[in-house]
């Protein structure tokens, strides 16, 4: 198995880094560039940027923020939010992103997954999933930042998207996001067991215990925002604790 990746997630609204709870109730944290550079220097394995209002306006506005980040940050960058076409994907990749994360547009037109994968490689095509629990062991995929239902079963949708060419899954639990109550480990397990591609768990990290249980549930990478943005934990602390727990992490 590869080393478990530690991935700070930067949710962006306009020019600002924001943080919410269950993708709502947004609070402005500051300039995303300052956070990105700090996380890079602290040894982050990757960064995820999400334009959280892009679907609302029908476009991703992150290209300037990404291009600024890419001047100083030399680790992989994934960008999501409002990417609707191969042309949108190209624009974001040209700005300095390494991968695009697509949710809403992929649900509306699943062939987009294949088109992006064919043009830029599967590794650049990350399926972004916003999951809400609907019953024990069952989750529904949502779009538009957890606002719109789709009727799609998360596990079935992920399997189909991977067949279409998605090379990685960014799996966000809308129920847990921003709550610090821990990752939805049943969801991580259900998805990671049914797919051959790497799964990035997102939503709910409050402590190192949560990190460890997400890893043990099958996550290949763990994304976190709240714990880092509010300075309640540092990346080296997470890395050390993961290593002490016997998890494979990069030694920086």
């Amino acid at each position: 198995m590869s080393n478990l990746r530690i991935i700070p997630r930067l949710d962006i609204k306009g020019p600002n880094l924001i943080k919410g709870v269950r993708l709502e109730g947004l609070r402005v944290m500051g300039d995303p560039q300052e956070f990105a550079v700090r996380y890079y220097e602290a040894g982050a394995d990757e960064l995820v940027y999400m334009d959280i209002v892009a679907s609302l306006y029908g476009r991703n506005n992150l290209s300037d923020i990404i291009s600024r980040a890419a001047d100083q940050v030399f680790i992989p960058i994934t960008v999501g939010g409002g990417i609707r076409s191969v042309e949108d994907a190209r624009h974001i990749l040209r700005s300095g992103a390494d991968k695009v994360a697509i949710n809403t547009a992929a649900i509306a037109r699943p062939e987009l997954i294949t088109e992006v994968a064919r043009r830029f490689g599967s590794q650049a095509m990350v399926l972004s999933v916003e999951a809400k629990q609907i019953a024990a062991g069952r989750w529904e995929a949502y779009t538009d930042n957890g606002r719109e239902r789709t009727g799609l079963d998360v596990v079935e949708w992920v399997q189909r998207a991977v067949e279409l060419g998605a090379g990685e899954v960014l799996l966000t639990s809308v129920d847990r996001e921003g709550t610090r109550k821990g990752f939805e480990t049943d969801l991580i397990e259900a998805v990671s067991r049914k797919t051959g591609v790497p799964v990035i768990a997102s939503g709910g990290m409050g402590s190192i215990k949560d990190f460890i249980s997400a890893a043990k549930s099958g996550a290949d990478a763990i994304s976190m925002a709240d714990v880092l943005h509010y300075g309640r934990m540092t990346i080296p602390e997470i890395r050390m604790a993961a290593r002490d727990a016997g998890l494979p992490v990069r030694l920086t």
């Binding site: 198995m1 590869s2 051959g196 591609v197």
Partner: peptide, 11 residues
């Protein structure tokens, strides 16, 4: 044992 493909991450 099954393993992830793509191979993504630090090695």
């Amino acid at each position: 044992a099954p393993q992830r493909v793509p191979h993504i991450g630090w090695n």
